[in-house]
Design a protein around this nucleic acid. Sequence first.
DNA 1: AACACGATGGACT
DNA 2: GTCCATCGTGTTA
Length: 208
Amino acid sequence: MGLHLEGPLLERPFFIRPCAEVARDLLGRHLVRGSVRLRITEVEAYLGSQDSASHARFGRTARNAPMWEAGGLAYVYLCYGIHWMLNVGAEEDGRGAAILIRACEPVSGLPLIHRRRGIDASGPVLLAGPGKVAQALGLDGSFNGHALFVAGGLELREGDAPADILSGPRVGIDYAAEPDREARLRFACVGTKWVTVLKGLSPEDRSG
DNA sequence: AACACGATGGACT
DNA sequence: GTCCATCGTGTTA
């Protein structure tokens, strides 16, 4: 056992699509670093320079440079001086689009996850939150710009897609202008307990 | 060069 | 619900 259970890496074209589409498609995929494997359960799409909630609203800077490359690079930044946040770049270069990984469920590597998080919990308190996900993966600024479609280091691999998708407004962006503040750009796996805030989420309209 | 503040999380009332 | 740690970043001057 082992190797044949390892889903293949996502290839680069996966990321070179509209940001919200990639965001929905990231649900259920696996983030892998060494023994730690996490299944993505909640994400937020940040659309680019025209999105007043996005770091891309300032244009290209030293910090957010990975957002502006072609999709598939990690954008990792420090929030509140304390918490590292993991984003996945999307779309073609020059767009500034990226997806924040907000919550995951553990698949393997619990001992290391517990050690990095500093708690022994088994519920959502362990991995529901963008800072928690990055901490569990042992990420810091040195991962900014890391290619997620390359084996070794931090990887994005196939997983199992959710039965259905919930969507709702993004969290913690009160500074954004309308309509960005209300845009339904947060996505989560239906039925999961591994989600930061259930309030505001509802099933996507699948008609059409 | 100074300043304001944040895509949060944990402790606490 | 409230408070606040802690520092890199972008803004303004």
